[in-house]
Design a protein around this nucleic acid. Structure first.
Lengths: 218, 218, 218, 218
DNA sequence: TATGAATGAGCCTTCATTCAT
DNA sequence: CATGAATGAAGGCTCATTCAT
């Protein structure tokens, strides 16, 4: 639940104060994620992050040495944790590759996309040029593993004869692009666009279906 | 129509200085677009915008009452000019709808995507929640007309029997999402990601091909 | 009587912990003196003082109500203990006044100058205008007794015919100034000046000799 | 008079505003010197420096990139300018070396000691360990040239037979120490010590006399 | 007593905005 | 119209001080 899997604390030795101390970093990271995603990095004041986490300005600096450090920690703590799980799910998956692709997209939406966590994508995109090293981190820890995972899925489909052979590298971007798009949509456009309804679940199903009919043997 | 190019004005009785005077606002808008896209709104200093436009800080405020006003003007001035042309091209287009879709995507890349203009998309997305009214613009001036244009194209395909009947509203997003994705890619990730090669022209062709095979009659 | 040395207490019924408790204030004063002299009052953090004394930040405030209070206590506790001894030594001194002056200067260097205690002089000087009342202490407790002691020595020399009559008040400053100078030298310049060698013992001997014999040919 | 010897500005082209701009740095340096000497570096707020110079906080940062930069500029601008003059005066001096020494000390007092500039010595001493590079600068630009100048004077006295041969290196410190002492006295002790009168001019004369003639009966 | 997590006033620094020239 | 020196509100960060444990 927290970053550092913490042993049960209910026993005698741990006081309320101490329990707060251990929870603080995550509370601050959550608050920061919310505000960074909502207003952008520069437009968010550390004081507001602290307030949202229920602490004072000074407390934040007990746990993060600077606003930028907080930014990196936010990105780090919300990424990359899912890939081990997903890679394992991929290895153990029993159904067809078609089902697998649908499952992958839908579970992304449920676990990430429909969550504040997808704001990270928007955040990294928005602030990329101001924090090149963060982008490096994002590329290595998120983009590349994600790309590889999708590529493996597509290759599985080709290998077992479901799909005809095609350029999987480019095809991955056809999947990734809607993930990026829905991240933007959720955190940027949709809150402001009263019209323009879009049901992500249906959209994802249709999108994958359309692509796959193009990839299937005729 | 590009950022730096200006149509020859020597024929009229306009002196060089006066020409500069008239060009000022546009030069400032171009400079602002460049920097806002590159660094974000908050991280861009008006002084740098002025410097890039070749004028002093004070001059900028002769034309735009505030930094926020400049931001909105940047968005406004870079929107919506293309749709009349595209709508006309659509009406006059002679080939198949498949060809038409490829043409639409490729010409978007050539005229917008591969240009500073696509930075608008990134910009609006990045700063959306701080400027809700700007998103309103964008929705009315860009997203909605774009959606309608693609929808008309898809409907044309259905009407003339090329495509089977399908949910065109959602299908449009399968096209729009890659446009959004490539805008982000060009202005955020690709400048920082040394690896992860992506050829937009090939990607767009493959993407449309895959989708259409899904949309075609089997 | 030196800063760190503490007389053996084991004989009494005082336990180790209690001994620590009684030693706390002095340990804090020693730590504060060290850091105040080294970095100045403002640049010294109370947390560092506490850490150097081996206690927590909170403990420091159990003994001193504020950083300023700590500062004043540092000055107070390091002053004035030497003059009774020196006055007695003066009264009992058997040799010539020339010998006496040399002895006074050399023993100042050994007992004070070459010790953290001379940092007090630097400290008072550096922070004087921010703590005028501290300077009052210092004047009454150190400068005035010191001046009187030197004046008595010089007067002794005049009285017993070793010296010709001269303005002893001003002459005292010729002695005091090198004491002040060596205090500064030890705690400010010499740690930073790799070149500029100065041997205080030799310098003090030469200085006193010069004052007494002069540089001219007789 | 100012740092960058400025051409006469009274002619037409220079407006009031521009004249201020050229005067600002020196005004700020003067204000900073005053406050740094009076309260120390850390205890001085840049806002107070700006206020004393008659400008706003922001203006100060137009001319100095940081408080530390201002500190270094203060030290730099008030030092080292006198040595060329003094070296020349030494070369052209006609009288005896005894007269020369008296002249050197008295003119130091008039031109530096009795001025805010002597506060620099106190300032460097107080903040030495926090700004080691400043001390390096001070040693090279001030202490060393000063030492050499005095040494040349003493050597002149030995060479022309006025003085007997003695250790000039150490003797220089007998002169330098009173310079340091009077700097401290003026800026630290004397403002707080209502008693303890000290007339620097008389003290300097007596000090030099004593060093040269000694206190003993001949 | 001792601890150290928490606080928040205060300071350095930035930068959008103004205005005298 | 254009300039750029000047402003001052705002925000990141520090650190003396408090207080629950």
């Amino acid at each position: 639940m927290s970053i550092t899997a913490s042993p049960p604390l209910e026993h005698a030795g741990i006081h309320k104060r101490e329990r707060r101390k251990q929870a603080r970093p995550q509370e601050l990271l959550d608050a920061a994620l919310t505000l960074f995603v909502e207003k952008g990095f520069a437009a968010t004041k550390v004081e507001d992050v602290a307030a949202l986490a229920g602490v004072s300005k000074g407390t934040l600096f007990l746990y993060f040495s600077s606003k930028e450090d907080l930014f990196k920690a936010v990105i780090r703590s919300n990424l990359a944790d899912h890939f081990p799980v997903w890679n394992q799910e991929f290895d153990e998956f029993q159904g067809t590759t078609v089902e697998m692709l649908h499952y992958a997209m839908q579970s992304w939406w449920e676990r990430i996309g429909n969550t504040t966590a997808s704001g990270i994508t928007k955040l990294v995109t928005s602030e990329a040029s101001n924090f090149p090293d963060v982008v490096q981190f994002y590329e290595v820890e998120v983009m590349r593993p994600g790309h590889e995972l999708f590529k493996k899925i597509l290759q599985r489909g080709i290998d077992n004869g479901e799909f005809r052979a095609f350029d999987t590298d480019n095809a991955v971007y056809s999947l990734v692009s809607v993930i990026a798009f829905l991240s933007m949509w959720k955190h940027s456009l949709s809150p402001c666009c009263t019209s323009s309804m879009l049901d992500p679940v249906i959209f994802l199903r249709n999108h994958v279906n359309a692509l796959m009919h193009g990839w299937l043997h005729t």
